[in-house]
Amino acid sequence: MADQSPSQIAPRSFALPRIKGRVVVMTLYLLFLLLPIYWLLNMSLKTNTEILNTFTLWPRNLTFANYATILTDPSWYMGYVNSMIYVVMNTAISVAVALPAAYAFSRYSFMGDKHLFFWLLTNRMAPPAVFALPFFQLYSSIGLFDTHIAVALAHCLFNVPLAVWILEGFMRGVPKEIDETAYIDGYSFGRFFIKIFIPLIASGVGVAAFFCFMFSWVELLLSRTLTSVDAKPIAATMTRTVGASGIDWGVLAAAGVLTILPGALVIYFVRNYIAKGFALGRV
């Protein structure tokens, strides 16, 4: 996607009025996407008095007190740390086990491969609500309740199939002759896989890691069910803002804005591959 040949992106009948129509449509759509986020940002920079008493389109008394509350209180910022830990663990596990499996699916046919592939996919389709209670009992019984690894393993349920699916799509694009040449040159499978093959599909690995990161980061039902204190994710910590004196809107909004940042950061690195990634490497 990144390296288009010039003939493919040559302008086609870009008459002036059409360009205007495009710009209008895109502006409206992006505005629709950004307005609610802007409103959250706007609220996070206001005091609670200003939020509740006056209706203002931008903060009149700019304050960073809400962010200061979160960044100085361990019970708040540990939520971010916990989320980060299990998300990174999950991404590492998912991609590591998915790589060889995706290679097998893309290169070989073996007994039951199609059924296995579909069975993997059904796990991506499994409603987390179905698994919430059994997971809780399973991880409690093996003493992993309220640990990061429990959430990381639980999220493998939908991330491993997804990683296999994406990587298989990318690997299919690599000509098989490369494998054969490497074997003739005397490479063992392990050395070929790590030294030659993985660098070839580096962008695919990046995209798969990005998607694992994303789906683990946004999921709440399982991570909330499996944790209580030590590994509590930030998304669950946010419910703390509901106190005896009502909801602390400013802090709630600031916490929300801070959950958007990691996603916005990682997306910047994979921006050229996003579209292909969402198509699961199948374009």
Binding site: I37, M214, E219, A235, T259, I267
Partner: peptide, 19 residues
Amino acid sequence: CLVTMSLPLLIPWNVVGTI
């Protein structure tokens, strides 16, 4: 456009609800 459009996809689901 790509980055902006992907933004809502990367927000934790309960924060989407809160927003």
